[in-house]
């Protein structure tokens, strides 16, 4: 076998291995989805979505958990997006390169990798106890915001960095101030990248359980939250509780809730991806 044939063989081998690994990942995901849907689809109906949790598995529903998740996500978005994008803009466009900002940058990147339970403990100490918000939606949203802020900040910075400096120069040369340039040139051009970061961050937040348990999310909430200071439950919390129950019916209910959580995640991501693509088309890229 000469060198040429050998190289070709190695080339093909890598290609095959690559394809194999790709399909392996998808296959495992497909098996998981299949098992969940097979186990839980029988429970999914209007009653399941609109019933309160119950001790009897066949009567239990996820109404409060869904509303809790939606409320929590909404509040988390409201809190974390302005702060995250603002911090990203500041670090990328305004902050002078000093030792302090370098330290800040490294730490923000590191924070994205801190285990979520740590954020839960932080939230418990600061929001639940110190500010006395209790185990409320507000405490949960603030804690989740802390958790996803590093992701949004890093994504914002990367997106802003990708805006060609020639565009910024063009804006400055026409007499624009820094803020006008950020507002009219930098942000519109980096919107797609920022939105991608937000999608990632939201997908992480919607599935979080551990920090919310610490902060005080309830497994059993028999009423719909009316204000940000009410106690709450969320879907992952509900799933977690049900899977720990001995009655077989709860395992089915948990599978049903997982399907709903997946659907929520897909819809949320889908909407964000739709807006991102629409935006990019508008910009003409």
């Amino acid at each position: 076998m000469n060198n040429l044939q050998k190289n070709k063989l190695i080339d093909n081998a890598f290609k095959t291995i690559g394809i194999l690994f790709t399909y392996l990942g998808i296959l495992i995901l497909a098996i998981l989805l299949y098992k969940i849907i097979a186990a839980g689809s029988s429970r999914i109906n209007w009653d399941f979505l609109t019933s309160l949790p119950s001790r009897k598995p066949e009567k239990a529903g996820i109404y409060t958990a869904i509303l809790g998740t939606l409320d929590l996500m909404m509040l988390t978005i409201i809190i974390s997006i302005p702060i995250g994008i603002g911090a990203g803009i500041y670090l990328e466009e305004y902050a002078k390169k000093t030792k302090l900002t370098t330290l800040l940058e490294i730490n923000i990147a590191n924070l994205a990798g801190v285990p979520s339970i740590i954020y839960g403990l932080l939230g418990l100490g600061i929001f639940v106890r110190f500010f006395n918000f209790g185990g409320s939606i507000l405490s949960g949203a603030l804690t989740l915001s802390l958790l996803i802020l590093p992701i949004i900040i890093v994504a914002t910075r990367e997106a802003i960095k990708a805006v060609p400096s020639s565009l910024k120069e063009a804006s400055f040369a026409l007499g624009a101030t820094k803020w006008q340039t950020i507002q009219k040139v930098v942000l519109p051009s980096s919107f797609g990248g920022i939105l991608t970061g937000i999608i990632l961050a939201m997908s992480r937040a919607i599935g979080e359980t551990a920090p919310l348990i610490v902060v005080g999310a309830m497994a059993y909430v028999p009423f719909v939250p009316h204000s940000v200071f009410d106690t709450f439950s969320v879907l992952p919390m509900q799933i977690f509780t049900w899977t720990t129950r001995p009655k077989a019916g709860f395992a089915i209910a948990a599978s049903g809730a997982i399907i709903i959580l997946l659907i929520l995640t897909f819809v949320m991501n889908g909407v964000a991806v739709y807006f991102r693509n629409k935006w990019q088309k508008k910009l003409g890229n």
């Binding site: 020639s166 120069e169 063009a170 804006s171 519109p188 910009l283 003409g284």
Partner: peptide, 9 residues
């Protein structure tokens, strides 16, 4: 500028 740099607008 050297290279045309229209805004993506």
């Amino acid at each position: 500028f050297q290279k045309p740099n229209p805004f993506p607008k």
